[in-house]
Computed example of a mutant assay.
Amino acid sequence: MSIRHGLLALLERGPRYGSQLRTEFESRTGATWPLNVGQVYTTLSRLERDGMVEQDGEDGSGHALYAITDPGRAELNSWFRTPVDRSNPPRDELAIKLAMAVGAPGVDIREVIQSQRHHTVQAMQDYTRLKARALGTEPVNRDEVAWLLVLEQLIFQTEAEARWLDHCEARLVRLSMLPPDEDTAAAPEPAAPVTGTAAGHPAEQR
Rank of each mutant, 00 (worst) to 15 (best):
T29W: 06
G38H: 06
A9Q: 11
R49D: 01
G30I: 05
N77V: 13
G57Q: 11
L21Q: 14
G38C: 00
R16Y: 07
G60V: 03
P15R: 12
N36V: 13
E48W: 02
N77M: 13
E75N: 07
Q20P: 02
T32D: 11
R81S: 15
E75M: 13
T82S: 08
R81L: 10
R81W: 00
R81I: 00
G72N: 08
P15K: 13
S78K: 12
S45K: 14
S45M: 06
R46V: 00
G30M: 09
E24D: 15
R13I: 02
E26C: 05
E24G: 04
Q20H: 06
S19W: 02
L35A: 09
G14K: 12
L10E: 15
S61N: 08
E54R: 15
L10H: 09
W79N: 07
G14L: 11
L44D: 06
W79M: 06
A31H: 11
V37W: 03
V53W: 04
L10I: 12
L21V: 08
Y41E: 14
R28H: 08
Q55F: 01
T43G: 06
L47V: 01
L47Q: 08
G38Y: 02
S19G: 04
N36E: 15
I68V: 15
G60C: 02
G62P: 00
T32N: 13
T82L: 04
G60I: 02
V53T: 15
Y66L: 14
R28F: 09
L10S: 11
L35C: 10
A9N: 10
S61Q: 07
Q20S: 14
L76R: 14
R49I: 01
D59E: 04
S19C: 01
Q39A: 10
E12F: 09
G51P: 11
I68W: 04
L76H: 08
L10G: 13
G14A: 12
L44H: 05
E48T: 11
T32M: 12
G62V: 01
L11N: 08
S27N: 13
D59W: 01
A67S: 13
Y66V: 10
W79P: 03
T43P: 07
E26R: 01
F80H: 14
A31Q: 14
V53I: 11
F80W: 13
R49E: 05
T69Y: 01
